[in-house]
Design a binder for these strands. Structure first.
Lengths: 336, 336
DNA sequence: CGGGCTTCGAAAAACGTTTCAGGCGCGCCC
DNA sequence: GGGCGCGCCTGAAACGTTTTTCGAAGCCCG
């Protein structure tokens, strides 16, 4: 039986005080006498009163929900972002509205206008395209915006991302430390920013060692199948391979396995992303781990800082450092 | 420069009509003359007016957000549910509030009260525990509830789930059809409802073939590692194995591989879940696919039916049928 | 030509809060 | 003893809609 929920007025009546006193007890307890406050709180409990944030928001102009727009929650990278964002939002008492644009720009747009309608207090976006003009509507409306996994010009808002250059660098540095000198980068399309960056990091690492050389082969898609294919076609074997994605790495290892090549002993392999597959695969992959949950969490926190500090908030571009997870694919059995 | 958004009043002024007319144009266009309507719409466009659903909700009593409470978005099963739910919510114009309880009952509870506060129009819950008493608060408030992946007594609300008994049955039926007669079920803890159900399905399938027999071994955890372990310990080989989870299946295949057993030819293996790993693994796994996105989508749709139909809505328990994805682990190379 | 009906549009109340401007009583100080 | 300040509380307006009630035209038909 859906009972009509108690309103603040009912509480006021029950406690024998005015509506505004109840409101004060709830929002600025210091303004009200301890004894009265207690009476009010008793009434709240007795009536099981829950405030109506919608009505409050109407008055204050603030809602208590923030938007999270991303291309596909079913993709583990994004769902990890969502996880971190949800955690942070929960801790700060905000509701997180999940907007899955499903790789469709018009849907991304639709979500943005929905968030404008809802008067979302701010939005975290993992944008579909590099072109940020779509986001101007938010900006016009004065809704704070944090971009994730993509840079934004500093005057327009905050952004969070993972340092892919550093990721490429530590991957290849590790290969170098483990003695590899003839290193191959198995990369995705260079048009993808992440791929270009990771390659650039790899080059940086190699540059510090005179005797090392770096090659690159580009896979059309970053899938296991293409990894296998590339392994089959390899003419002379490198002694270290850096795959810019774990799928490629997994495929490469399998392909090399088919050729009788021993991973780690003959060819050391480093992947990227620390996807589930990296640890499940025949020889578990050494790989670059990205603090993705942190990304989501930080995005929300920067957003809320902007929301709450308003005036003295300075836009910030926060870049997270990836690290390396050591597994068997770069650890020959002889080693400890 | 955060411009104060246009209100309905501004639109009315601009169009030279009253506030109520604007409202009517927006909500019940049939009530207003086409010419006036057009003028109003022009004004709306000119002022870039977006209605404030919070204010509307205040008046109508309905909000336009629905809650999705689940244990962990980063888990692919749940994130797929979220995907389906987000799709459905978007199509119906509702905002989906993501509530990740992170396996913590008190947090689940916290989210539920938050949803009550927000006057969510309804909630889809994938509950942490089988005990549904926690959900009574929602019920008391008259907030419709749909349970996902867990049954609910029909008078209390709708629920959606996947038929695990059928899943076990088709898995083992397939093994039988492919000639297996000595079948092993590699299962998880029998306390887990899914595991018990899948095993029951397996038994049903075997019962239809007199000459077939079914064994079971229980893994402490449903991980790749335990799968490997079980394969190593196996005394006499079955000719068909049904693993109630793809991780176990992947591990089992690897373990059997180590022993020189040829998958598919000597032992046919079926997994469960169609996780990413199933297709990436050395011999791609035949596995039971669950229509998880559909689950999420259906949950939201049933919820909205209850919300919108109210009186004539009948609670429903919808059970989805899984199907089989055929891959190499049950297809000997000789076969087509 | 007039009456009733239809069609449109307007005015105003209501939704549940917050907040601002006071107001009331009490104690303190002179 | 009176004025003043302070602590505590109240009344009322405002937030942006929807919806109900009602009035004003215009039309058809007799």
């Amino acid at each position: 039986m859906p009972v009509r929920p108690a309103r603040i007025q009912d509480v006021a009546a029950a406690a024998g005080v005015s509506v505004s006193t109840v409101s004060n007890v709830l929002n600025r307890p210091e303004r009200v006498n301890a004894r009265t406050a207690e009476r009010v709180r008793d009434a709240v409990a007795a009536l099981d009163y829950v405030p109506h944030p919608g009505a409050a928001g109407l008055r204050t102009g603030h809602s208590s929900s923030i938007g999270l727009v991303l291309p596909d929650v079913a993709n583990s990278f994004y769902s990890r972002i969502a996880r971190g964002a949800a955690d942070a939002a929960y801790e700060h008492g905000y509701a997180l509205v999940l907007c899955d644009s499903g790789d469709a720009p018009e849907r991304e747009q639709g979500y943005l206008t929905m968030l404008v309608e809802q008067r979302a207090v701010g939005v975290v976006v993992v944008p579909l395209s590099a072109d940020p003009t779509r986001l101007t509507r938010l900006r016009e409306r004065g809704i704070p915006l944090v971009l994730a996994d993509r840079a934004i010009s500093a005057q327009d808002g905050c952004s969070v991302s993972v340092d892919d250059i550093a990721g490429g660098r530590i991957a290849v540095q590790h290969l170098l430390e483990r003695g590899a000198r003839d290193i191959l980068v198995v990369n995705g399309e260079r048009a993808i920013r992440q791929c270009a960056d990771r390659h650039q990091g790899a080059r940086q690492a190699v540059r510090s060692r005179r005797e090392a050389r770096l090659d690159q082969v580009v896979a059309k898609e970053m899938t296991v199948a293409y990894g296998v294919e590339i392994a089959r076609r390899l003419d002379d074997l490198p002694d270290g391979v850096f795959c810019t994605n774990d799928f490629l790495a997994a495929g490469l290892c399998r392909g090399l396995g088919e050729r009788g090549v021993r991973i780690a002993e003959e060819v050391q392999v480093v992947g990227y992303g620390d996807l589930d597959i990296a640890s499940f695969v025949g020889t578990p992959l050494t790989t670059v781990r990205q603090p993705v949950e942190e990304l989501g969490r930080a995005a929300v926190e920067m957003l809320l800082d902007e929301v709450e500090a308003r005036a003295e908030h300075a836009h910030e571009t926060r870049v997270f450092a990836p690290d390396l997870v050591l597994r068997d694919s770069t650890r020959s059995p002889s080693a400890t």
